[in-house]
Amino acid sequence: MITAERKPLEELIEYIKPFKRILLLGCNECVTVCSAGGRKEVGLLASGLQMAMLKSGNNIEIRQHTLERQCDPEYVEELVPMINDADAVMSMACGCGVQEIAMRFKDKPVFPAVNTTFMGASERQGVWAERCQGCGNCLLGETGGICPIARCAKQLMNGPCGGSVTGKCEISDDVDCAWQLIWDRLKSLGLEERYMEITPAKDWRSGGGSGPRKIIREDLAE
């Protein structure tokens, strides 16, 4: 899933300062799952913004709404009746959702309320960790199912650097050494010899190196 974190309130206040009526939008997909922009966070932010604005003498009106998914035009269409009542939209969805709103409502200012952070997994309650960088050319099949690009601080594709200590990365004790994980996996799969194959320099074109990417499924696309 895509993970995100709420931006500091201060930054958000700067965005909405010029406006009176704000539509605060949540998304019931990834950002709900990572507790960044679901119905609950929308409620908390609405209340927080309201209070912060009140303090600076602005009484603004914030309406709250949470869409099933903000990155699909059909869901965004739901907003049509609400959009005219708003001077500006603040979206708690990921960057995709924010842009979808911007594309659909050309004359309405739209602001992100969260920083879209990474594609990750929930390690346990309240902890999310990066797992994928969308390089477009997956090599998990070679690395025992652990991605060295997303999970090694140096994106090493051929083994651990000299900073791997007791399974942790040199940059932080909170970060597992991806290559320790890969090695452990290879061992338990009995594929130790695979390590000896040198992974050649990566072709980054699939990873965005040749500009914004698009997927077109001919059979589905109209």
């Binding site: 609950k40 409620g43 209340s47 209070m51």
Partner: peptide, 11 residues
């Protein structure tokens, strides 16, 4: 006690 309850009380 929801975070929302607390924030609402202040609001």
């Amino acid at each position: 006690v929801d975070a929302l309850h607390i924030v609402k009380a202040f609001e």
